[in-house]
């Protein structure tokens, strides 16, 4: 089974009347030669690890969950929304809280699921967990949505890149947001076309975003950019489901992202030699970390 573009998948919908989850599962069965149940179990395990990471990051007893620069920030957001101070509304506030929580577990060498990378690992679980709570969605359906997200990411991997070192942050968090947007549309019963539109707009909203990690670490700005990715996914899904389509089709947006990524100078592709990574404060942090070691 060959899938390289959204066009290929839309064709499968016409000929076989499959939804995005069914296409992804069929693809994985044919690609791996594994039994369908084994594949579903594997995804179910990934979801359990994602939920566990969110919970760990918000556990007040986990004082050691700290990176080299930051840590224990998601728990402050949680305290804020629990005292009715949410600005964005509960679903979005929870999504960004859970995204940050996952990233804090990641920076403290805890267990996470790269989705699609470790540096963007908060976006998808954050979005899905917040939706699950807001819409009372069962785990089985969330697991299907993870396949949808995986399929979107796979097309981007084939047509462009998922790596910050190659394509900048747009390729990591932009891709994660696209995956989460498509998964959100799927969970809320949108069409296949709407899922692709949500993914297209999510990438468009982050087009050109550079990768400029302070001291080369997956902390600043990565951590809070994961929150942006989760919020971006939700707002794109909301627009698409309200009937606002993407003018440019998903495949063309991915091509554009690749072209932009190819034009990014090396200093803006995860080398910590551009952007905020060379700011005065970043350099001071870098010197402090080097000294500590």
């Amino acid at each position: 089974m060959k899938i390289a573009t959204a066009k290929d998948i839309l064709q499968l919908k016409l000929t076989h009347n499959l939804n995005l989850f069914e296409v992804a599962l069929k693809y994985e069965v044919s690609n791996s030669d594994l039994d369908q149940d084994v594949i579903l179990d594997t995804m179910s395990r990934q979801w359990e690890i994602m939920k566990q990471a969110i919970a760990q990051g918000l556990d007040p007893d986990n004082q050691h969950l700290h990176g080299k620069i930051i840590g224990r920030e998601a728990i402050k957001l949680k305290a804020s929304y629990e005292s009715d101070k949410s600005i964005c509304g509960m679903t979005t506030t929870k999504a960004i809280t859970y995204a940050l929580s996952t990233m804090e577990v990641n920076m403290a060498m805890g267990q996470i699921v790269a989705a699609p990378t470790a540096g963007a690992s908060g976006v998808l679980p954050g979005t899905l967990k917040a939706l699950q709570e807001a819409h009372h969605i069962e785990d089985k359906k969330i697991i299907e949505a993870l396949f949808v997200a995986g399929l979107i990411g796979m097309i981007i991997a084939k047509q462009a890149s998922l790596s910050g070192a190659k394509g900048g942050c747009q390729a990591e968090i932009g891709s994660a947001a696209a995956m989460a947007a498509a998964a959100t549309v799927f969970l809320l019963d949108g069409t296949m076309e709407q899922s692709f539109d949500g993914a297209a707009i999510a990438i468009n909203n982050m087009m050109g975003l550079i990768c400029d990690p302070v001291a080369g670490l997956v902390e600043v700005p990565c951590h809070k950019r994961n929150a942006l990715g989760a919020a971006n996914a939700l707002l794109c899904a909301e627009m698409v489901l309200a009937g606002l389509p993407s003018v440019i089709p998903f495949d063309e947006v991915v091509q554009a992202m690749k072209q932009v990524g190819d034009l990014l100078p090396a200093c803006h592709r995860e080398t910590a030699t551009g952007g905020i990574a060379i700011s005065k404060t970043a350099k001071a942090i870098e010197a402090r970390i080097m000294n500590d070691e």
Binding site: M43, R45, M109, G110, V113, A114, A115, G150, G153, M154
Partner: peptide
């Protein structure tokens, strides 16, 4: 698909 939703790993 598990190259994208995965690997489960230590950060």
């Amino acid at each position: 698909i598990f190259d994208i939703i995965g690997p489960a790993m230590i950060g």
